[in-house]
Design a protein around this nucleic acid. Sequence first.
DNA 1: CTGAAAGCGCTTACAG
DNA 2: CTGAAAGCGCTTACAG
Lengths: 343, 343
Amino acid sequence: MVTVKSIAAAVGVSPSVVSAVLRGSRHVRMSDATRAKILEAIEEMGYTANFAARSLRTSRSGVLAVVAPKLSNPVFAPMLDGIHDAAEENGYAIMLAEAMRLVDGSRALERILGQGQVDGTILRPSSDVDSEGVRSVFKREAPILVLDEVPDAGQPWLAIDDVAAGRVAAEHLLELGHTRIGFLGGWFSAHQGFRPPAGFRHAGQRRLEGYREALQAAGIEPRPDDVIESDYAAHAGRVAVARIMELRDRPTAFVVNNATTSLGVVGGAIEAGLRVPEDLAIVAIHDIDVLEDVNPSITAVRMPMYELGHRGVTLVAHAIEGEEILSGIITSPPPELIRRRTT
Amino acid sequence: MVTVKSIAAAVGVSPSVVSAVLRGSRHVRMSDATRAKILEAIEEMGYTANFAARSLRTSRSGVLAVVAPKLSNPVFAPMLDGIHDAAEENGYAIMLAEAMRLVDGSRALERILGQGQVDGTILRPSSDVDSEGVRSVFKREAPILVLDEVPDAGQPWLAIDDVAAGRVAAEHLLELGHTRIGFLGGWFSAHQGFRPPAGFRHAGQRRLEGYREALQAAGIEPRPDDVIESDYAAHAGRVAVARIMELRDRPTAFVVNNATTSLGVVGGAIEAGLRVPEDLAIVAIHDIDVLEDVNPSITAVRMPMYELGHRGVTLVAHAIEGEEILSGIITSPPPELIRRRTT
DNA sequence: CTGAAAGCGCTTACAG
DNA sequence: CTGAAAGCGCTTACAG
């Protein structure tokens, strides 16, 4: 194995000098010739750093953990792009972890909790996450940031403007002349057998708030019956449509809390013989690529997910340097309505 | 910081004994009372292992890296489930890495290549992956397994039965009476500006092979013009449909190489005024949840992705123990046709 | 300005 | 059967 020591021996200097060259340190001075010789030896001998040793010595791993549920959810794709970009910019590598795997006693959780593995954590919680697991992550001393949800237990957080998202979606439908607008979505209480990690206020609840605000601002009193609970799968959209069809007197439009669900809503509505958007108009919250390509393409509110990820990592990187994290909402760019064929 | 040493001091034993308790080692014997006291101290003092130190000492990290492109592709979801399950079973944690991020000089690549970080790697290649980055991963001494593609450069690999997938899809269409069947799909040569990592034979090519076999077995000579190249996005399906519509004399059915693409194909076909399946029948290769819930729901060939991931990790875990990896194809369960409304 | 030495926390071969 | 000691590879405070 090629080590700092073996390179030092080959070049005829002390390990300290090699280490300094490796880290680009200016504290240790050496002649340009020496530096060149060392660099050449590193290249030639094929040195690769031993991060375990480095971490042990510096008690920094250079790794940030990102814990999220259902990493395959397309909504996360731009967020993960932002996370990765910011990580590179700040000199960190990202370790992705499936939140649902963070159960007590798992290797995955052990990794996050162990010393010398992770300098900071970004946690995107969800109802599907084992509460015990999540809670234990909070016990770590390393900085933690809650993404996309607002905890009330004092942890720093960063979220998108969910209230505005609900408002923008509802306003679009109001502008189109709809007066009877429903809201279809999930929040924790809707999940049978699940409860929110203690202290989290769910994005769905905030979006519902925005929807209510928009209706009330237009002089319409939202009807509790027009708020339909569901979960997040595409199939949930189908199930919800079946329920909607049973209503004698139903809304002409729905704000759908989730992009994936909207696929099932539209699919189910068409199959049930409804014309979309004539009989039922749909606005999804969160824009994903596929909404553009299905038929009819689905109107959606695009959220700044890239920025959420990017800013989140930057905040954690700063927190590692001792800065305090100021929790808040990303307001720029604001939620943007992408009008397609379901409205 | 609570260390092995501090626990040893608190209990009044030597660090070796604490270490033995921690690892459940049978080599070091101690009284039940001592073990109980140590366990209690570990719990009470809130010990968490320092993995950096452990890795440095044992030169094992207990981590397997999984490198794949577009982790948010829903096709990967069951594969990642299988990977995570097998990792837990074999005592490993998984470090997920976006292949597209593994470019030269990135922190992400540095992590994979560095010593003491990763005991083995599972690589799902793709045309989008920076070839330099991929090539350097192969230089690692730790075991590597190529998933879902067949390299001809001698690396061990594990794949699903793509030839059978193409065959099953085409046979279904033949059984329905179609005689003019096209194939829509992407392989490396189709990607402008990309070339395959040297030595990889793409899944798309193998599926095309299976499609050709099925047609020939039915006495139909496949027409080169009916094979349409595209890439993998949903939007590519729309683009392909536009091309198909220009054909004077076109197939009545298509095998679509990719589940996401099939969404765009169906969406585009309906928008172009084609009836699906009457004017154009579609079978997608790879089944994903959403195909069930769009309208019309899309017929697909389900592939054993969970098994691919599970078996892949198991093979790598064995390889770490010194066993040789036997490359091969997962034949059980075989590709399964899920018939829906596009055929 | 440069190099020798200490030590991060752990595990394990070895001495008692 | 149990404990003291060495050492994994690195970085850095310190002595020269």
